[in-house]
Design a protein around this nucleic acid. Sequence first.
DNA 1: GACGTGA
DNA 2: TCACGTCAACGCCGA
DNA 3: TCGGCG
Length: 833
Amino acid sequence: MALETYQAKRNFGATPEPRGAKGRSPGNSFVIQKHDATRLHYDFRLEMDGVLKSWAVTRGPSLNPEDKRLAVHVEDHPLSYGDFEGIIPKGQYGGGTVIVWDRGTWTPLGDAKKAYRKGHIEFELDGEKLKGRWHLVRMHGQPGEKHENWLLIKGDDTEARHDGKDILKQRPESAKTGRRIEEVAKNPTDTWNSKPKGDGKAVAAKTKKAGRQIHDWPKGARKAAMPDFVEPTLAKLKAKPPAGDGWIHEIKFDGYRLQIRIENGEVKMLTRTGLDWTEKFGKDIADAFKALPIQSAIMDGELVVEQDSGASDFSALQQDLSQRRYDRFVFYTFDLIYLDGHDLRDVPLIERKRLLEKMLPAGNDKLRYSEHFDENGSLVLDHVCRLSLEGVVSKQRDSTYTSGRRGEWIKAKCSQRQELVIGGYVPSTSMKNAIGSLAMGFYDNGKLKHVGRVGTGYTATVAQDLYERLSKIEQEENSFDDRLTPEERRELVYVKPELVAEVEFRAWSSDDKLRHAAFRGLREDKLAKDVVREMEKTTAKNLPKSTVTLTHPDRIYWPDEGVTKEGLVNYYAQVWRFMEPYVVNRPLALLRLPDGVEGHQRFFQKHAWKGMNENIEQITDPKDRGGEKLLRITDFDGVVALVQSAVLEIHPWGTTTDSWEKPDMITMDLDPGGEVPWESVIAAALEIKERLEAEGLAGFVKTSGGKGLHVVTPLKPKAGWAEVKAFAKRLADSMAAENPDRYIAKATKAERTGKIFIDYLRNGRGNTAVAAYSTRARPGATVSMPLEWSELTADIGPAYFTVDNTPPRLDALPKDPWDGFFAAAKPLEKRKR
DNA sequence: GACGTGA
DNA sequence: TCACGTCAACGCCGA
DNA sequence: TCGGCG
């Protein structure tokens, strides 16, 4: 065991975990000793009351689990001295903003990739005894900045924490800093740009219509050329609309969000991501826009198909689209971004809408102006819901038009109501002779299906009244056709299914239970036998069911898309039959975000943890028998358990646990650097495919759900990790060598602009790549989507498929896009290794 | 998300 | 009781 | 040998 010593360049002192402290000795340097030849390398900086008191460059141990002991020897230092030999706190924590006390203000330094160490420190400074804690973090830094490691120290009372939350609490006056922190803390997002590049060649104006004269442009309007695609404002999903005068409320449409661009007499309709879908929607809408007395404009709105009730209907819309039936389309315009030479994005919303209303002819049956309401938000929602509309979108009256989701727009959805049969009750625990909750059901083919309990919505009088009536019709036997779980049966008293109640609820859950149900009264006029489910079951398909309990099924994981924990389970239920072979019986690495994609927590996990759901299996790495247990799932319950654990990305090894040492697939990750056109990424994927086929191997392609594409090769498990990785490296290297202007096989960021990084490093032992059909923990609820090669066109970007649009896609597919994946597996032959 | 720990 | 911390880690490449 | 990258 080699023992190496490194000397600090200057003074430094640290005494982690007091229990680890051992002895002290004078001297004049900070020495850190390393056992074994594991890599050691950490930089420390020591910040005290705004002054850089001292600093040191040291080296620490790698996080090799075997290498947990660190010996530190600190000598003759004004701050601290002593030896310690202690257990290094294992692991690190990920993410967050690092803040330092710098010249009198808290300054965010940037994102901490991880904090490696922390500990306590006691020291004397100018005769004063001080206590503190230290953190060592590794910095992301800003682009172009030097990357540094910082040790943050403050006294006990004002310890600098890695996420800055406490600091903000203590220093409310630093609101400015707070915003900066927010910004810095924001994850650098996807740089993939699916916007069409402004199409360059201007189409000659056919007929120049007389533009409507606007003499007094509202304040904020800027003379400007028409911008390219403007990323739409997105609404954040909230439980109810915001209160206050600053908000206006519009009806929420259930259709396709489109950006209308009128330019040189041409009308274009772009989707949320900027794809040109003008052709998809027939001529009617485009013609209606063409007829407007406008020279150029960008408008924001939604294409819908209205039911008779006036509610928009997404499924009808999709039906019409697939049947090329265009006559029922109606376009609701709700925002005006650009008009006749003026950029209106900085104009307050209310003014934009005023202008928009003037532009749109009243009484047009194709184009409508989306009216808004000034009343109290909850009132509007109530009203809207009573009309069986979907919900409301609330917008800040004076907000400018900003791309993305910033909370200026908030959407709230309506609840549903329906009559249900009371099949039992649970006595109240707080009141005598009153019910606490009701067990409800509906009839399906003459059988009473249990849909869960309704435990709210009663006044005390009603609860007593119900008890009075229900206790008279008690019965021994189960009133429901279903076998209830012990939890569902707990305290339950069955009654003859005679009474009908109206119940309000937010949604049906995947297993046909009520969500957020509230009692709204008895329906004396209804016969129990007539109570059936009002809303068509959306799926008659044979979806896998899970017994895993979801806590907080309403937890929102993707606020923009409104994808909840339960929604994610539904997604996996739909894709499971396709996804299963790529995730079961493989060691897994997980990316977990308990607070969703916008939350502050985000961490990888590859080892088992305490309290882990029993449907996630703990397995032993045969190469590391004494080590921590790795993870595996074997069935649908396993994925649901992952979702319950807030796993938003699933990264399996490229092997099954049946043959740990022999991978059954190769994943080549094509990661385009900046300014690489999407067509080039497609070309790269095709080139890899050809090269693989030249070697007698098959290639399958999937979107990454992020920026690029993955080309995956099935293998007969024969060659070992080293050989497979060497093959992958050779493939990447040869492509980079032959086309150095297009490809690069190494991760050097600076050289990657304009090139595609062919990442072969996912093919080593213990390395992972995101699973087919796994969601990605990024905005948009995107998924990694297997494609047939013929589907790989410019229309489909790397982040095109999402939790929302994937199930309909899979339904429409004649077969698995990766049909025959494992059948196409060939062993990696010796000569190719 | 679930656990352990220290205040 | 509450607030906080913890949850991966290694080879490769260029300077 | 170090920092930076996935």
